[in-house]
């Protein structure tokens, strides 16, 4: 017990501080024009290369399935990359903070380190979603030769991309916090990224995967995070939309629980073993 009395922070302090971190993240994002241009350029180059690839594959009937078309595949990729390229690489920031010891100084503040980091990254995420959504999806419309067959999917993509990017952000935070135990976070991120490729269907829809892989993938967070978003390019049934929303909400809740437990364990380690 302490004998100290300190004026309690005013009501809503934590919320205002969190919002201030988000504002700072957005401001920092606006300051990096070159990064904006580079990210958008990369997005467009990927779409251009894959659109040519899909054109050849469908022209040569290497993939002969009436459900799919070269144009729909371009839109699929445009949607999955929209979420992926918009999500800040928060794991690198956290790893740098842990390695440099900055995390110790941040822990002295009367606001949670991990909440501040997440809010800052979320502040950077929103303008990225807007810019990459406008620029990248506009470019996708050009290379795909028009909108998807069922353009309502693009409307549903707006809330789903926010959920999907939020889940990616939480998962990258979990990856970053492994720096509290590991010397190198890179390999953990690499494994996670392979999961996004293989089980998420980052480049191609899970619908063309073998049944068993598809079944497994839907038990992981990767499938709703990427395929759940991308398959809107083919139009989506109400049942699929509900499945995606529920799965994303479930995995976001799981990620929050894991993150909270992991952060508490990690900080306890810092408090006893130093950093």
């Amino acid at each position: 017990m302490s004998g100290a009395t300190a004026a309690a922070p005013s009501p809503g302090h934590a919320l205002r501080a969190t919002f201030a971190f988000a504002q700072l993240g957005a401001r920092q994002e606006r300051a990096g024009f070159a990064a904006w241009a580079g990210r958008l350029g990369f997005y467009c180059v990927i779409l251009l290369i894959f659109s040519r690839l899909w054109d050849v594959i469908f022209a040569e009937r290497l993939l002969d399935d009436p459900r799919f078309s070269a144009s729909a595949f371009v839109w699929y990729l445009a949607l999955t990359e929209w979420a992926t390229l918009s999500t800040p690489q928060i794991w690198m920031d956290i790893e740098a903070d842990v390695r440099s010891g900055d995390v110790a100084q941040r822990l002295c503040r009367p606001v949670s380190y991990v909440v501040g980091k997440l809010a800052e990254a979320a502040g950077a995420l929103l303008p990225r979603l807007v810019v990459l959504g406008g620029g990248g999806l506009g470019f996708a419309a050009i290379v795909a030769g028009g909108l998807p067959q069922d353009p309502r999917g693009l409307v549903w993509a707006i809330p789903i991309v926010v959920f999907a990017a939020l889940l990616q952000l939480l998962s990258f935070t979990i990856v970053g916090l492994t720096a509290l135990w590991l010397d190198e976070v890179g390999p953990v991120y690499w494994i996670w990224q392979k999961g996004m490729f293989l089980l998420g269907g980052l480049m191609v829809p899970l619908a063309i995967y073998p049944d068993v892989v598809r079944e497994v993938a839907w038990w992981t967070p990767f499938a709703p995070m990427l395929n759940g978003l991308g398959r809107l390019a083919f139009g989506a049934t109400t049942e699929e939309l509900v499945q995606t929303f529920v799965a994303l909400a479930f995995w976001i809740a799981v990620a929050c629980v894991v993150l909270s437990w992991q952060f508490r364990r990690g900080v306890r380690g810092l408090e006893t073993g130093g950093g």
Partner: peptide, 11 residues
Amino acid sequence: DTFELLRHVYD
């Protein structure tokens, strides 16, 4: 910008 953030952090 940092000063403004710290204003909210420290209430």
